[in-house]
Nucleic acid binder design. Structure first.
Length: 274
DNA sequence: AGAGATACCTGGGAGC
DNA sequence: TGCTCCCAGGTATCTC
């Protein structure tokens, strides 16, 4: 499933392929994915130059010269491909964006957890209005151990849930939370407010590290994520704890235990993580 | 206010 | 082999 590194990989590729082009036609093949699709009825999205493709949290923002924007969220199984216009449409390619260079950008979303919103921007480079309440970017200098300590100190709940809370820090999903918490030696069910400043520092550092490693590897292919050329991400080979319930811990051989925290699968080595 | 639970959806794996 | 069942996930929304 696409987490932040995957979205980053996709955004970089879209920026390279689409900047300077424009949409000549938008076709939808389904009325509702997560929300009703309306963008095929919005002529202001057509024939205006694509100025940038950027990312905020897991949202892909395609900004047009006329200050309209297409905002795409891939949900858990969405992917985007850029292929020639004459290529046959795949079963779950629900939206086709025709580009002025003869290519199509295709939004594929088998489980329909993704969505596409459109909005107008107050100024060039501005954030879409509905993204204003998001927390800091995990790879930005704003995400520090001290910041995380401040946030956890005033809240209740398990550390894992706080790391996945989008109003604190964005784009850290279930896979990378598991990996970062293992690397930092902290149990995911620890009360967030029980973390020392040093533990927060260590955890924040490991979150950044695991995200950077994954970006370098082209993202994690787990079930159906693909890069825009259809190739697989390679980070899945490097997962040390996620999905390894019942298997021995790679550091100490203790059996990895699966539990449910915040309604999501969690993986813990009770010897290495305190 | 904030935290927890739930709905959304379907491919794929497990089990029979 | 083929069927059924259940699980995976991020976000919005509801409830407490």
């Amino acid at each position: 499933m696409p987490e932040l590194p995957e979205v980053e990989t996709i955004v970089n590729a879209l920026e390279r392929e689409m900047t300077g082009e424009n949409f000549t036609k938008i076709e939808t093949f389904i009325d509702v994915i997560r929300y009703p699709l309306t963008l095929h009825k919005e002529p202001e999205l057509l024939n205006s130059k694509i100025v940038t493709v950027r990312r905020r949290a897991r949202y892909i923002i395609i900004e047009l010269a006329n200050l309209h924007a297409v905002v795409i969220h891939l949900g858990m199984s969405g992917s985007i491909r850029i292929v020639p216009q004459n290529e046959a449409r795949k079963k779950h390619e629900h939206v086709l964006f025709y580009l002025s260079n003869g290519q199509t950008m295709r939004f594929d979303c088998p489980r329909r957890f993704g969505f596409i919103k459109t909005c107008s921007l107050p100024t060039a480079g501005a954030q879409p209005p509905f993204l204003h309440d998001l927390g800091v970017e995990p790879l930005s200098p704003k995400f520090t151990g001290h910041y995380f300590k401040t946030q956890t100190a005033k809240r209740r709940g398990a550390v894992k849930n706080l790391l996945m809370n989008n109003s604190i820090v964005v784009g850290v999903g279930n896979i990378y939370v598991a990996e970062a918490m293992f690397a930092a030696g902290i149990r995911p069910d620890r009360l967030g407010s029980s973390l020392t400043e040093d533990e927060c520092k260590k955890l924040v550092a490991e979150v950044k590290k695991v995200l950077r490693q994954s970006i370098k590897a082209g993202g994690t292919t787990f079930s159906d994520y693909r890069q825009i050329d259809g190739s697989e991400g390679k980070f899945v080979r490097e997962l040390k704890i996620y999905g390894r319930a019942g298997e021995p811990c790679l550091k100490c051989n203790t059996e990895i235990i699966k539990s449910i925290i915040g309604g999501r699968s969690s993986f813990t080595c009770h010897k290495c993580q305190k």
